[in-house]
């Protein structure tokens, strides 16, 4: 049975004297009737797919609608000049977030984490960490289990689809998962992991899902950037010893409440927010006209 709360995961960790990621993998073994090796290997395949998707990026192609494409390449060139505000590491995170979002829009292979629209957040933070030897492959995979455990609780208690709960459910969840992974990698305690995750989700509460012309392109690609950046700052805050007043389970419940009270125009219908701006409406008309 999937965990119904983060509290349950933490209790299992204390009771069995195991780490967060172990509680998650143990649960997966019972749930899917498999072995620890198989489950670990399966997660390794997810990681490999993230890395190979990053390698697959082509700066010269556009999506079908031509709304996105090339931003990752542009950002990389800019960042290499060394004049950005964000610096080398964060610059690379932004670049990967854009590239993954664009890969998805351009019908390339990605790993939904937790959804296709939010596929850029996890790899955007993990690939730069991996490339700088801040974590080896084994550690990254354990971090992915940590993140997946949190995502699973979010899916149980609330939702992870924009159509159900707005973008807070997609990018917000991805950001909460990524914050947990980053905190784990730097040796943060279980408590710090949940603080980082709670902060990340809390910061994105209320984010609406408003894709222009209903396509996972605008504002989705750039939302991956905010999801990744937010994860970095929240992980660093937690590692600095900053806690969060509202516990993670309660932040998840709040996300659900906010999502349920959100107007359907703001839940992936492509009728509100950015989609409903004069420009958004014009683009939709133009694209429909083509069909």
């Amino acid at each position: 049975m999937a965990f119904g709360s983060v509290k349950e995961i933490l209790e299992k960790c204390t009771k069995d004297n195991i780490e967060f990621w172990q509680a998650v993998i143990h649960d997966d073994i019972t749930e899917r009737g498999t072995t620890e090796e198989e489950s670990f290997e399966k997660m390794r395949i997810m990681w490999e797919a993230m890395v190979s998707s990053a390698d697959d990026y082509e700066p010269d192609i556009k999506s079908n609608s031509s709304l996105v494409g090339g931003m990752g390449g542009k950002f990389e060139k800019y960042s290499e000049k060394g004049e950005s505000y964000c610096g080398d590491f964060v610059g690379e995170v932004i670049k990967y977030a854009l590239e993954m979002g664009e890969n998805n829009a351009c019908m390339k292979r990605i790993v939904a984490a937790p959804t296709a629209g939010a596929c850029g957040v996890m790899p955007a933070v993990l690939i730069p960490v991996f490339k700088r030897n801040m974590a080896d492959e084994e550690k990254i995979i354990k971090a992915l289990f940590t993140a997946a455990g949190i995502g699973q609780v979010i899916a149980e208690r609330a939702f992870i689809a924009g159509a159900s709960g707005g973008c807070q459910a997609e990018i917000g969840s991805a950001s909460a998962m990524a914050a947990a992974a980053l905190t784990f990698i730097k040796g943060g305690s279980n408590e710090k992991i949940t603080f980082a995750s709670a902060m990340a989700l809390q910061n994105l509460l209320g984010l609406v899902c408003d894709p222009v012309a209903g396509l996972v392109e605008v504002p989705c690609v750039k939302r991956n950037v905010i999801g990744a950046m937010n994860a970095l700052s929240c992980a660093d805050m937690a590692l600095a010893g900053i806690g969060n007043i509202i516990p993670l389970d309660e932040v998840i419940d709040a996300m659900r409440e906010v999502g349920e009270s959100m107007n359907v125009n703001l839940k992936e219908t492509g009728c509100g927010g950015c989609a409903n701006t004069p420009t958004g409406i014009r683009i939709k008309k133009e694209l429909m006209g083509e069909e």
């Binding site: 999937a2 998650v24 649960d27 997966d28 749930e31 899917r32 399966k42 997660m43 395949i45 997810m46 797919a49 999506s63 890969n103 998805n104 829009a105 351009c106 019908m107 390339k108 292979r109 990605i110 790993v111 939904a112 984490a113 937790p114 959804t115 296709a116 629209g117 596929c119 996890m122 992915l144 289990f145 993140a147 997946a148 455990g149 995502g151 699973q152 899916a155 149980e156 992870i160 159509a163 998962m177 396509l215 996972v216 392109e217």
Partner: peptide, 21 residues
């Protein structure tokens, strides 16, 4: 949902409902 519905699936984008589905 199992954890590989969360971290996964590996799919061709852009949309789990409109493409993978």
């Amino acid at each position: 949902m199992n954890i590989f519905d969360i971290m996964g699936p590996i799919m061709v984008g852009p949309s789990s409902s409109h493409t993978a589905g």
